[in-house]
Design a protein around this nucleic acid. Structure first.
Length: 467
DNA sequence: GTAGGGTTAG
């Protein structure tokens, strides 16, 4: 490939924005490289990654010739956009399919939640002798993400001992973790280490393996194992990327080892990204270090805190972390300021979880009336999250009759929401803790009645008010 | 140039 084409290709694969992709596209045209199949395929993928399927499609349609890689790229673009029917049609027209074509279809169906079709395509790929370990991994991941760990495990076991690669193991571990079974994720990690020691050199754990098992340690609260794994990571010289850094920091923060967490933060190999900052801010907050959390926030937006650090734009999660940090440390005035700056300064309209944080914070500080005003003036109808905060926190303002009244107002509003939300069932307990036994019975009757109503033949659409 | 996994809040 001539030098300008190679340079252009590198730029296309590395580019990050829509306008950048468009600029590189027109550059390719001016250089007379637009008809180059490799360049066009890279551009197609670049558009697809930014969610610009229509542009990707046009590029594809205008290609004078299309090889199997170009078609596979288009197939993936359609799949990522959820256009299952179009993907299937294109796949059906393909004369020679590579394993990547089959795998793309499996992933496409899995993402659309159609596991039956995914399984059909997967089995066909086995029959067509066009499968690879990637097909198995894609299918297993589909089951994992659908919460069907039994089916995932069955496939994993069917693979035998030589076919699974480290990604297969990572997928299974992550599946267990996401499915709320961190103990099984840890068990698989031990099994992986044993298998590797028995001579499977392909099964060297990656930073992804370590991130998952560390997250599992954090969930079961096994700091001892977590530390051991941290040592193992250093001993094996596994590269601690931002993902693994986050998992380690999170584990240390959750176990109260703030200094260890900050040590990890200081040694992140590149400039910390949004995820890293969010982890640090929430971690400091949950350890009662509200002032430090706020300082971290300022470092984040100003690009300080690290030599040659970049400025990072906060997102909604950042503000949940920041506001709850304020809440844990009783920093009411600062929280009000940040909350009011969200839209005008940072361009982030407060969501219900942010209102929830503010309600939580105001109630804890005894500003029950202000919390009530906030909920009553928030745009849209307050949902179970916000009302739940109000319900659970308003009576914390002890001895305040207003608090109890507000709690009850929230309870009534919740009972008008969809009861399948689960929040309504928690109500009885709150009443009980308020020692209002008369209301407990009354509420339980309401819940029973509403559930009967919900199960009845005239079931309304879920998510709508029942009363 | 195309196909698979991993981290963050409450």
């Amino acid at each position: 490939m001539p030098r300008p084409a190679a340079a252009l290709l590198r730029a296309i694969t590395a580019c990050t924005g829509c306008r950048e992709a468009q600029a590189l596209h027109s550059l390719a045209c001016k250089l007379g490289l637009a008809s180059d199949m490799v360049i066009s395929t890279a551009l197609l993928t670049s558009y697809a990654k930014r969610g610009l399927v229509a542009r990707a499609q046009r590029l594809f349609d205008e290609m004078p010739r299309r090889d199997v890689v170009a078609i596979n790229a288009m197939l993936a673009a359609l799949g990522a956009a959820g256009r299952v029917t179009d993907a299937r049609a294109l796949f059906g027209r393909m004369l020679d399919r590579t394993p990547a074509s089959w795998n793309t279809m499996v992933t496409c169906y899995c993402r659309a939640g159609d596991l039956t079709s995914a399984r059909d395509v997967f089995e066909s790929s086995l029959r067509a002798m066009s499968s690879s370990v990637v097909s198995w991994n894609a299918m297993i991941d589909g089951y994992c993400k659908a919460g069907r760990m039994d089916a995932a495990r069955e496939l994993f076991d069917r693979m035998g001992s030589s076919l699974p690669d480290v990604i297969t193991w990572n997928t299974m571990m992550a599946g267990y973790l996401r499915g709320g079974d961190p103990a099984s994720a840890i068990a698989m990690f031990h099994l992986l280490m044993r298998t590797q020691q028995e001579g499977e050199q392909r099964l060297r754990p990656t930073s992804g393996t370590m991130a998952t098992v560390v997250a599992a340690c954090a969930q079961v609260g096994d700091l001892a194992l977590g530390r051991q794994i941290h040592h193992l990571i250093q001993q094996k010289g596994i590269w601690i990327d931002t993902v693994l850094s986050n998992a380690l920091m999170d584990m240390y923060f959750k176990s109260g080892s703030v200094d260890c967490a900050l040590d990890v933060f200081r040694t992140i190999p590149c400039s910390p990204n949004l995820f890293c900052w969010n982890t640090v801010i929430s971690g400091l907050g949950m350890n009662g270090r509200g002032e430090d959390a706020i300082a971290a926030f300022h470092d984040m937006v100003q690009g300080r805190g690290r030599p040659n650090g970049n400025s990072v734009r906060p997102d909604g999660v950042t503000f949940v972390a920041l506001l709850s940090a304020c809440s844990h440390s009783g920093l009411v005035r600062v929280a009000r300021k940040f909350f009011s700056q969200m839209l005008p300064v940072y361009g982030l309209p407060p969501q219900s979880e942010h209102y929830g944080c503010m309600v939580d914070l105001l109630c804890r500080a005894g500003h029950v009336d202000e919390a009530a005003r906030l909920v009553q003036t928030m745009p849209g109808r307050p949902n179970a999250k916000v009302l739940g905060s109000l319900l659970l926190d308003a009576h914390v303002a002890e001895g305040q009759e207003g608090g109890v009244r507000l709690s009850e107002w929230a309870a009534r509003r919740i009972s008008k929401l969809d009861l399948h939300d689960g929040a309504a069932y928690g109500l009885s307990n709150v009443y009980a803790s308020l020692q209002r036994w008369d209301r407990v019975e009354e509420h339980r009757r309401q819940v029973r009645a509403a559930v009967r109503h919900a199960k009845g033949p005239r079931r309304k659409r879920p998510g709508r008010a029942l009363l």
